[in-house]
Structure formats: structure tokens, C-alpha cells
Design a protein around this nucleic acid. Structure first.
Lengths: 155, 155
DNA sequence: TTAAAAGTTGACTAAATTACTTGGTTACTG
DNA sequence: CAGTAACCAAGTAATTTAGTCAACTTTTAA
């Protein structure tokens, strides 16, 4: 498991796509502007994302990128995996005296943890994140106005 | 939030300490041997860990390291934070037109996620990991032999 | 009390990764 | 066909990771 700024860039770019892609595709130039990431670096990241079909590109004028599928069907783990390679899991394959020794024991404990984190991130989708953000914003607004419309209140 | 091989090294080293530190301190040389990490790199990592009082060093012949406190009171988040600096949270402080724009929105969504991951890792301690590993081993052993004789045999 | 063992520290370096740059090509639109 | 924006590939600067080297302190034992 790996979690770096690269992964963060990918996730925020995907969020940008989900938020702004509702009417027409979003160009990398716009994302670059919005997120302060260089265009060419974005191209690299999106090449990885496209390979995993997390985004869909439309060429030509008026083109840009869409999400590859519904925001609820794209997990954070999907995105991180796409850009961060992540076959990291302390493979142990071939390493000296790894079987039976302390090394392999601690490694397997780490792998257990890594899998847990992965599962955790699999259960969170882009859609979830956006809804949570909206709810939080709504909470704040409701807190400001005396009239508590709807329900909205959640920790 | 950040999760790199550096963090993994730190966590596995701490696991090593927890497992082998029951009778007397563990030297970095032993951990270096067990984990296949260079001694000097371990020294750097342990300098960070010691600064956060996650480990306690004993000098002189027969010396080595102990855990700084009970294994149940050391979370994975503690360890990762100690070695990975992690004040990463897309601070946004001073960045151009970040307030009100798309950038700040996606950043705050990422920060929410980052905090969630942090909370998740705060709830898992070194002690937890070890117990889970033992339970898993016990499960496997019980599954293999009808008569559950101790444990001993591990892959 | 001196020497050796083990931890502690800091500065320096090689390798890897990240982030970015350049310079194209291809596909589509008007 | 001209312009836009995705796509592609190679190279590079900056940063981080991982490791090395060398000096030094504390503790113990001869």
C-alpha cells in the first residue's frame, strides 16, 4: 500500500471531474488551472487513469475528460492503485531466510494491515466523498439559519 | 496523509521490538539483521521514533531498544506520523485563489478523507496487529490438526 | 582507569521517485 | 484546412529515500 502526493493529485483531479463534468467534458487545462498541477504531469496521471478505464477522453475541440463510470462506482482504492502501482505488499519472494524468521512474521503482519487499509479505501467512492462534503456544507448553513429545514444533522 | 516504505520500515521494526523485546532490549543490529534494513538507516528512523517517545534506548553493552510504552498504546498512526512528517493536509495557506474556487473545494474533500484514514490508523495498535496475527495462526493450526496441540508449526 | 561495546549524532552521497518540460502526433470540430 | 485538445515519448530538475562514513558519548568489564 502506498499513499503519496501523486495519489492525492489523482484523487483531487477525479473529484474535479466529478464536480465539473456534469455538463460537458472537462479539459486537462481546466483541471491544471483549478488544481495547480502542471498540464503534462496531469497527462501522465490521466494516461494511468485511462488505462484502468476510470476516465474517458474525448478528443478534438470541445473535448476533454469524463469519469469512466458512475462516481459511486469509483473507489479511492481504484484511483490510488491506478497511479501508484502498489504491488508493494512486501513480497518476500526469494529474500534470504525470510521463511520462518522474524522478518516474514512482521512482514505478514504488515501485509494484513495493508489489506485492511485497502479494504477501507475500497469502501469509499468519489460519490461518497462529494456527498459528505455537501452534507457538511449543508450542516454549516443549517447551523447559521434558525429554521432547521429537512434533517441534515449528522456528525 | 502519507504512507511509504519508510513508514512500513518503521512499523515492522516496531513490531520486531514488540515481539522480541519481552526479555531484554533489542539492538538495532538485530533488527537490521531480521528486517534487512541497513543499520544506519534504522538509526535515523529510531531517532524520530525516540523523539516521539515511541521507543526507549538503553546505552552501553547489553543495551538496545524497548518500546516506549505498552504495545496497545502505540497506534500505527503514531508511528507513521513520527517518521513521515505528514503535516501534509493540503494546507492551502496562502495558495493563490484557493478560497472559494474549485481547488479549495476538492482540497477540503481530500482533507476529510485524509482525516478518516488517520482515524482509522489511530484505532489500530501494535498490540492489535500482533494479536490478529496470533489469532490467524491459531485458526490455521486448528484447521490443520484435529487435536489442537499448542501451536508451533507455521508456514 | 583504560578499552571495548553499544548507542547517538551529523554530514554526506547514491539511487529512486516525483514533478515538470519539450516536442511532437492524432482525432475531431467548425 | 485550421485550430483545439487528447495522446504519446523522451528527457530533466527537484525532492525524497535509503544508505554510508566518521566522530562521539555512555556504560561496563578487564
Amino acid at each position: 500500500m502506498r499513499l503519496s502526493t501523486k495519489g492525492r493529485y489523482a484523487v483531487t483531479a477525479m473529484l474535479d471531474l466529478a464536480l465539473n463534468g456534469v455538463d460537458g467534458p472537462v479539459t486537462l487545462a481546466e483541471i491544471s488551472e483549478n488544481q495547480g498541477i502542471s498540464l503534462s504531469y496531469l497527462e501522465q496521471l490521466f494516461a494511468s487513469l485511462r488505462a484502468k478505464e476510470l476516465v474517458r477522453g474525448v478528443r478534438g475541440p470541445g473535448g476533454g475528460y469524463y469519469l469512466g463510470r458512475n462516481a459511486d462506482d469509483i473507489s479511492i482504492a481504484n484511483i490510488i492503485c491506478a497511479v501508484d502501482e502498489w504491488v508493494e505488499f512486501t513480497r518476500c519472494g526469494g529474500r534470504k531466510n525470510c521463511s520462518g524468521g522474524e522478518r516474514c512474521l512482521t512482514h505478514s503482519l504488515w501485509d494484513d494491515l495493508s489489506i485492511e487499509i485497502f479494504d477501507f479505501l475500497t469502501k469509499i467512492s468519489i460519490g461518497d466523498l462529494i456527498r459528505r462534503g455537501e452534507r457538511k456544507k449543508a450542516d454549516k448553513a443549517a447551523h447559521l439559519s434558525v429554521v432547521s429545514d429537512e434533517d441534515s444533522r449528522a456528525a
